[in-house]
Design a binder for these strands. Structure first.
Length: 255
DNA sequence: TAGGCCATCTGGTCCT
DNA sequence: AGGACCAGATGGCCTA
């Protein structure tokens, strides 16, 4: 979101009264009698237990100081969230080779003029996808080790130059997030050899965030083109991946 | 128009 | 004491 276009921020930057845009009644942040100093400058506790020292009397902040302090805190929080979004965009760039508009971090819902079609991944989708990708990489690594072991046994350790599997490009390596378009079968095959200990509290609900570290976490997801067919969407209500559909006919790892 | 997604504000808590 | 982190609340924008 464009910071300057945000009326609240504008009000902040222009030192307009806090909570201006809204009525006082429906403002949990600014209830009637709201006083920043109650937090920033807490009054001595009533009903202190015996033996406790009363809190050190603190300097009362003037309204201007309170406002300035509030601005400072808000600004910090804004910065923190913007940094988080930058990191999220960096992750999107890795996870989504299409449709991502990296500079859109602060103007979230707008499409850039020249940007490729397709909606930006939501934060939750980005995280879920990244998790799947990481798990998949892990399982690939394990599979690779297993195959390497087989080859070594077959050829005798340290006797051959380069295993032919390598030359043949037959490794089940992941070349990119797009390879998350895998069938359940292939994923399970790959995942079977791995033993992650990840657990998820959402297990029961989401096939992508599911119990079995690998088995279900690697439930196949598939990119579908923006606005396309409207295949089944993850029903969990947690990830709600809008651009993925569970696939049953995707390419498999070469064997 | 409802629902999803998001940015921001805010107060609470924990840490340094 | 001040900053970081978190979660709840709120309102705006967008899409189906």
């Amino acid at each position: 979101m464009n910071v300057l276009s945000n009326p609240v921020i504008r009000a902040q930057e222009q030192s307009l009264p806090l909570c201006g845009p809204r009525s006082v009644q429906d403002l949990p942040h600014c209830p009637p009698g709201f006083n920043l100093s109650s937090r920033l400058n807490p009054a001595p506790m009533l009903g202190l237990q015996s033996g406790q020292r009363p809190t050190k009397p603190q300097r009362e902040l003037s309204p201007e100081e309170q406002q300035e302090l509030r601005r400072k805190i808000n600004s910090r929080e804004r910065k923190r969230m913007q940094d988080l979004n930058i990191a999220m965009d960096a992750l999107r760039e890795v996870m989504v080779p299409y449709g991502s508009s990296p500079s859109s971090a602060s103007s979230s819902q707008s499409h850039q003029p020249g940007a490729p079609p397709g909606r930006r991944l939501s934060k939750i989708s980005t995280l879920v996808l990244a998790r799947n990708y990481i798990l998949l990489l892990g399982s690939s690594l394990q599979e690779m080790r297993r195959l390497l072991g087989e080859v070594s046994v077959g050829m005798g350790v340290n006797t051959g130059p380069v295993p032919r599997l390598l030359l043949a490009g037959g490794w089940p390596l992941i070349s990119g997030p797009s390879q998350l378009l895998l069938t359940q079968e292939s994923l399970l095959t790959t995942a079977a050899s791995s033993s992650s200990s990840t657990s998820s509290s959402s297990a029961a609900k989401c096939p992508l965030l599911s119990p079995g570290p690998m088995e279900a976490s690697l439930a196949p997801v598939q990119w579908s083109s923006a606005g396309a067919s409207g295949g089944p969407v993850c029903p969990c209500g947690v990830c709600r991946l809008p651009r993925f559909s569970h696939s049953t006919s995707a390419p498999r790892f070469p064997k």
